[in-house]
Structure formats: structure tokens, C-alpha cells
Nucleic acid binder design. Structure first.
Lengths: 229, 229
DNA sequence: CCAATAGTGTCTGTGAGACAGTATGTC
DNA sequence: GACATACTGTCTCACAGACACTATTGG
């Protein structure tokens, strides 16, 4: 009871849009709300920021609590801040949304609280009524990812460290929701400076001709960019 | 004294990166701080958000207080949120930065408080030591603008409603800090779908051949985009 | 007519899109 | 050898960059 104020306080939160590709579907992690408001509805994982905690640190903390995955190999970036006065009926909550992208993120067990958590295809996620303004936040995250596939190496965060050309193509096709020509795609990737490089190995064991394994070659900005459609 | 808490409160603020082109220089509006901390240093205009006020509304309010310019004809968008715990030595302040872009923004009189306010070329602004983390915020705003010139109609916000091709070219040259070929530039602008259209009028009174006046033709996304060098 | 500024046309190389056939593995 | 999958080569068209000349005004 050390602090007093003549005004009601702001609460500052982070919400996470965690995206991955699971079973060929572009998917987002949602948690089922146990209590009011929006009990039983699905929502983004998130939580309040500590008074001495950096926003990005809070986002990392929530990411690890929710998925068990550390900062390594998961891309995290700030998305936008949502602060409508009525977005949470209980308090004035200003929430900074973070975008996380990872490859092969694990199946989620029931969260630390008793409520459920699971991966949803993004199209199903935005179609159902999410809690709070989380539909808007998911849409912002999805659009950010679709856009960044064009001019950054973000696509590589959806695949393991070593991957094949068809797997990389599938990332673009799944996230953009289009079909791409494998000949033009491979040529485009190969001609983009420092995007991918050969490892010399191949992925054996499947049917058909083994695909050569590639890895990131260091570029963070693609030049020339990949173009949507 | 109605509210009590066992924790110190968050303060939520907005800071504005207001950009325009003045006297041929890509410029940002800064205010001189009257009091501690950072007394005498230059800082971005901004202020605290009301407990029932939307973030964007707070940004509009600060914009109008600072420049006297209303929402009309000034582009305003959220930039990013800065929330390092030590960014303000007094309190925990989380600040959402907004980016404003306008044409011919007025000279600023001394602000409502006694301190000074003036336009700075962005290169000079980031070179001097700005208060708080405002250098980082200015750089984020500048990079956002440089980037958005490529694929959006943002360049049109730097010129009046009617403008000429050389004026539009000067926007790109000034913001990007490059020189462009007028023949290639005009061709590129003309071939970009619904970017600009002729008004039929011309700007008379100057020396040399009068330039034809253009106006926006409705596109918000440029296709194909303008490319930075 | 001279100075100043606006405006246009061509050539060339590169990259994107459309498209079909060959290579290499498993069963 | 049949099947499945990975991989590659060519043609065409559109656009970007380099570049020099013509047009229209004021003084």
C-alpha cells in the first residue's frame, strides 16, 4: 500500500502472436481463457509487464512459459501497441504485441493455469471470435509476416537450420496462400545474394530423388526481394 | 488519493516524430526541455496519455498542440513502443511513438510552456545528443519514412495537394539522400498505377518552362514500387 | 536570344513468368 | 522398371538504368 494516486492506474501488458507451420498449416498459438471476461474464448498468450522489466524481456518470458522454447532459434520482434481505453473491461490495459516465429514449435500441454492451449490454423483463428481485440492483433501479425517474407530472411525461421528447396517453397506457399512455380522459385532463391547456400548433404530416406540440404547464407535483407504473387 | 497500489505505477506516454521538408531539408520538430531531467536538451514533443484517452487521440492532441495543425492533411501512424525500465529516470514510462508527416508545416512559436521549439534537419537532430532515448525514436521514424516511400503513397504527404513532378522527385531525393534521373523518375511515376494524375493546370510565374500540376490519383500502395537506388 | 527549367525517346541488360523434360532415388 | 520426387533450361516480355536532346517560359 505504498503508492497512492488520484487517478486509476495503467496496466502494461504484452501479447504474443506466435506463428509456425504445423502439418502444412500456417498456425498461431492460442490459449483458452479460464475466467471472465471472455471465459471459454480463445486468446493470445500474454501477461503483465513487471515494473522493472523490459517489454522485450516480458515477451521472451511469456514465450518460454507458453512454449518452453527459449530465445534461441525463435525470432521475436515488436509488432504494435494496442491501447483502446475499452479493450479490457476491467482496467486500462495498454498491450504491446510481439510477433514470434519458429520452426517445429512443440505441441503445447495444458498451460500453467488449468486452461487449454493449442495451435490453430490462422484462418480458423481469425474466423472465430477471439477475446479482447486479439483478432486485430493476429491479423496485424499475419500481415507483418506475409510482408516480411518478401524482403527479409524471415522465411528461414519457419524451417529447421538445414532445409530443402521444396520445404522453403512450401513456407512461401503456405504463408502467402499461393502456388509457386518450382523452377522460377529455385532460380529466384539461388540468385538472391547470400540468401541460402548448399551444405553438400542431402535428405535421404524419403521416396523419390533426395533433396539437397541448404542452410542460411547470412543475408537478412533480400536483394532483390521475393515478390508476392 | 482514491487509488492505492503496492507497486509503483506505469506511466503511458506518446512521443511524436513529426517530419516535413523545410527549405529543402528533411526536418524533424524538436522541443527544448525546460526542466530536469535533460534540461536544455532537445527532445521530441509528447506527453502523457489520459486514463480514458486512446493512444492515437493523445498523439493527435499533441500534434495539434505543438504545430496547430489538425488531423486533416497530416498523416499519422503508430511507429513503435519504447519501454526500457530506465529510459526515464523519474518513473517507469512506456511511450508509444507516433510518426507524423505533413507538407509545409508551419514555423513553430515557443510552445505552451516557456521552452523553445523548432525544426531541425534530421541529420543534425540525430547527431546532437537528444533527451531520453529520442535519438533511437527519431531514427526509427526516419527509417520508416524512407522505407514507405518505396511501396506507399507517403511521398504525397510531403507536398501540397497539387504539386509538380520535380517537386515530387525532390521529396524522394531529399528523404533518401540520393539523386535521381528525372527521365527515369517521371516514367516510373507515370507508369505506377493510380499514383498521380494530371490536373490540366500548370504552375506559372517561375523562371523556365512552367511545370504541370499533378494530384494524387488514389493509390495507397504503389505497384510496382519505387526502388531505393 | 539567352538563361532556366520542364519534359521526352531509345537502347540495353536483367529479371520475372510461362512452360517441359531430365535426373535420381525407393520399392 | 515403375513411381515419386528433385532439379534444370529456354523463350518472351516488362521494367530499370544510362544517356541527350527538345520544349516552353521569363527577362
Amino acid at each position: 500500500m505504498a503508492y497512492t494516486s488520484e487517478y486509476p492506474p495503467f496496466y502494461v501488458a504484452v501479447d504474443l502472436v506466435i506463428l509456425t507451420i504445423r502439418d502444412g498449416a500456417f498456425s498461431v498459438l492460442l490459449v483458452e481463457r479460464g475466467g471472465e471476461p471472455f471465459a471459454g474464448r480463445w486468446a493470445l498468450p500474454g501477461g503483465f509487464v513487471g515494473i522493472d522489466e523490459d517489454l522485450a524481456d516480458a515477451a521472451y518470458r511469456e514465450l518460454e512459459e507458453e512454449t518452453g522454447v527459449g530465445a534461441t532459434s525463435v525470432h521475436l520482434e515488436q509488432l504494435a501497441t494496442f491501447g483502446r481505453p475499452d479493450r479490457d473491461p476491467r482496467h486500462r490495459v495498454v498491450s504491446t504485441a510481439y510477433l514470434a516465429v519458429g520452426a517445429d514449435l512443440p505441441e503445447v500441454r495444458g498451460g500453467s493455469d488449468a486452461s487449454d492451449a493449442r495451435w490453430w490454423p490462422v484462418s480458423d483463428a481469425v474466423r472465430q471470435g477471439l477475446a479482447f481485440d486479439h483478432r486485430e492483433i493476429v491479423e496485424a501479425g499475419v500481415e507483418r509476416v506475409r510482408s516480411k517474407l518478401e524482403y527479409s530472411d524471415l522465411a528461414l525461421r519457419f524451417v529447421p537450420r538445414q532445409f530443402t528447396m521444396p520445404e522453403l517453397q512450401a513456407v512461401y506457399e503456405t504463408v502467402w496462400g499461393v502456388e509457386l512455380d518450382p523452377r522460377n522459385f529455385a532460380r529466384k532463391v539461388a540468385r538472391t545474394e547470400r540468401f541460402v547456400q548448399e551444405t553438400g548433404e542431402a535428405r535421404r530416406g524419403g521416396r523419390g530423388r533426395p533433396a539437397r540440404l541448404l542452410e542460411a547464407a547470412g543475408a537478412t535483407e533480400l536483394m532483390p526481394p521475393m515478390r508476392r504473387e
